[in-house]
């Protein structure tokens, strides 16, 4: 199935990302080995110039990764027509064992490249580039991710055979099935609602404490809770939030809400969730760099800013989930 226009676009896009990261990593290895801020040799000057190139490359990589993630979901959704039994993106992801892993790796590499840009941003705030080695080691970590993403994607599309009967979302997320996705859907709604909203309250309170006091305990705690909240939110989307969006007690698909039929509500929903979780987790991660003298005051300011962004994004996310619950006539009370 490699001749589908969406597949061609994805394979070209991921190939370009792979090339960019490959080039950046090759240069990164040189920086890890040869970097010496005190030296004024020609090589050091050259390396300092190369840092600009690498940060530009990673920034574009992130941009392309975002486009390619949505394109991947869209292509999966578009392909459900040619797969017997598949009714939406979930069915196409499920058509062979590489679909979901490819999606997961895409999300992870999106997070990691965003984290790289965040670390780079902090590093550039200090005069002596204290994080430079750590930064380029992180870059070397992106390379295998992008590579496996490329391979998984190609395996997935090669493996999609238009005649295979796949389980569509109606089967995959139905309560009787086995596997992670279906066990999420079968989580009883009431406990899930309670966990979701109480965790949201904890996230908001801890976020506000980070903004106000900024002690080490709060930031680490906030980062942890943000991470957990991300997972709980995805589980809640599958378990009950999607039901309200589709107004159907049996439709658990997390991808359909990206479609025009549901007014593209998935985009602001997932965007705010990703933003919140990313900035929430990053406030805790950069706590590790606070001991570096040239960074400690900068990090304090950045932590407050990022915690604020995270809290606002999470609030927006929950507000979006509440819109159909409050304003649409659908109710889960009978279930």
């Amino acid at each position: 199935m490699l001749l589908h226009p969406g597949v061609i676009a994805l394979v070209i896009g991921s190939g370009i990302v792979l090339l960019l990261i490959l080039f950046a990593s090759a240069t990164g290895i040189r920086i890890i080995n040869r970097w010496d801020i005190k030296s004024s040799s020609e090589e050091q000057l050259d390396l300092e110039r190369k840092t600009y190139l690498i940060s530009t490359l990673v920034q574009y990589t992130l941009l392309f990764e975002i486009i390619s993630l949505f394109l991947f979901i869209y292509t999966a959704d578009d392909m459900h027509n040619i797969l017997a039994g598949a009714m939406c993106a979930t069915g196409s992801f499920n058509a062979n064992p590489y679909g979901f892993p490819a999606l997961y790796v895409k999300v992870i590499s999106l997070f990691i490249s965003a984290a790289w840009i965040a670390v780079n941003y902090i590093d550039n705030k200090a005069q002596d580039y204290p994080l430079i080695r750590m930064k380029y080691k992180l870059l070397l970590f992106i390379l295998p991710l992008v590579l496996s993403e490329y391979i998984l994607e190609i395996m997935d599309f090669r493996g999609i055979d238009p005649n295979v009967i796949t389980s569509c979302c109606g089967v995959l997320f139905s309560e009787g099935g086995i596997g992670i996705a279906s066990s999420l859907a079968s989580i009883p709604v009431v406990p899930m609602v309670i966990i979701f909203y109480s965790l949201f309250a904890i996230v908001i309170v801890s976020g506000i404490s980070v903004i106000r006091s900024g002690s080490k305990f709060y930031t680490i705690f906030f980062a942890l809770v943000s991470g957990i909240f991300f997972i709980v939110s995805i589980a809640s989307v599958i378990s009950f939030i999607s039901l309200y969006f589709y107004q159907l007690p049996s439709h658990h698909c997390p991808f359909d809400m990206l479609q025009a039929e549901y007014y593209y509500t998935g985009y602001p929903l997932y965007f705010s969730l990703f933003m919140g979780s990313f900035f929430g987790m990053m406030t805790g991660i950069i706590e590790l760099f606070k001991h570096i003298p040239s960074l400690s005051s900068v990090i304090r300011l950045i932590q407050r800013k990022w915690a604020l962004i995270a809290v606002c994004s999470f609030a927006l996310f929950v507000a979006i989930t509440l819109i159909p619950i409050i304003f649409l006539p659908f109710s889960l009370r009978g279930y």
Partner: peptide
């Protein structure tokens, strides 16, 4: 016309163009 076609078109044209100009711009 929908977002999907536009994003395919962007990946096929704008992404390679931008990528090919990164190193020269640097």
């Amino acid at each position: 016309i929908d977002f999907y076609q536009i994003s395919i078109l962007m990946s096929l044209t704008i992404v390679p163009y931008i990528a090919s100009t990164i190193i020269p711009s640097w």
